[in-house]
C-alpha cells in the first residue's frame, strides 16, 4: 500500500521565505540608496555600495533558504524531473551565497553568478518537464514557460540595467510559485 505524506510543505515554505526575504531586503537596499534610478543604473552599483549590505544579506539568506527548501524537491517519491529541479536549485542557492560573499570585482563572484544563472534556468527547464509529465501541474508549468519566454524577450528588448531587474523579479515570482506548488502537492511518498 502506498500512502502519501504531505511533509514537503515545510520545505516549500522555506522557498517562499527565501524569495520574499531577498526581495524585501533588495527593496530596503534600493530605498537606502537615493541616487539609484530604476532601469538606468545597474544592480551591481547597489551591491558594491554601503547600502548593498542589505541586498548582500538578502542574497546570502535567500540562497541558504533556497538550498534548504530544495531538499523537499529532491526527496519526492521517484520523480526524476523534480529531483533534477531540486538538485539544481540547491546548487544555485549555494552559488547565490557565494555571489553575496565575494566582491563584484572578484573573479569568483563573476563565475558564481554565471553558474547561478545557468543552474537556475536548468532548474526551470527541469520543472517544466516535471509539471507537464503526466499532466501533473500544468498551470505552474505554463507560468514557467511564460517567464522563460519573457526572460529571453527582455534580454533582446532592454538595456542591461532594465533586464537585470526583469530577471530578478521573474526569479522571485518563480521561486514563490514553486513554493506554492510544493504546498499544493504531496512531495514524499512512503511505502507501508
Amino acid at each position: 500500500m502506498i500512502s502519501e505524506k504531505k511533509s514537503g510543505g515545510a520545505f516549500a515554505v522555506l522557498s517562499i521565505m527565501a524569495a520574499s526575504l531577498f526581495f524585501i531586503l533588495m527593496i530596503i537596499s534600493i530605498a537606502d540608496m537615493p541616487g539609484w534610478a530604476f532601469g538606468e543604473d545597474l544592480i551591481e552599483e547597489i551591491s558594491s555600495s554601503d547600502s548593498g549590505v542589505y541586498m548582500r544579506s538578502g542574497m546570502a539568506l535567500g540562497g541558504m533558504l533556497l538550498a534548504f527548501g530544495s531538499i523537499g524537491m529532491v526527496f519526492n517519491g521517484g520523480r526524476p524531473g523534480k529531483t533534477a529541479e531540486g538538485v539544481l536549485l540547491m546548487i544555485s542557492g549555494i552559488l547565490l551565497v557565494w555571489v553575496a560573499f565575494f566582491e563584484h570585482t572578484d573573479p569568483i563572484h563573476e563565475v558564481a553568478l554565471m553558474l547561478f544563472i545557468i543552474t537556475f534556468i536548468l532548474a526551470a527547464i527541469a520543472s517544466i518537464y516535471d509539471d507537464f509529465k503526466d499532466n501533473r501541474s500544468m498551470i505552474f508549468g505554463s507560468l514557467t514557460v511564460l517567464l522563460l519566454v519573457v526572460w529571453i524577450g527582455s534580454y533582446a528588448a532592454y538595456e542591461p540595467a532594465m533586464y537585470q531587474m526583469v530577471w530578478i523579479i521573474e526569479a522571485v515570482i518563480w521561486v514563490i510559485a514553486r513554493g506554492i506548488n510544493g504546498l499544493c502537492e504531496p512531495t514524499i511518498n512512503k511505502r507501508k
Binding site: M138, G141, S142, L146, L147, V149, V150, G153
Partner: peptide, 16 residues
C-alpha cells in the same frame, strides 16, 4: 497548454 503559455509569453516579449 504549452502552446497557450508559449503564445502568451511571446506576446509579452514582443510588446516589451
Amino acid at each position: 497548454v504549452f502552446m497557450a503559455a508559449l503564445a502568451t509569453g511571446v506576446a509579452v516579449a514582443v510588446t516589451m
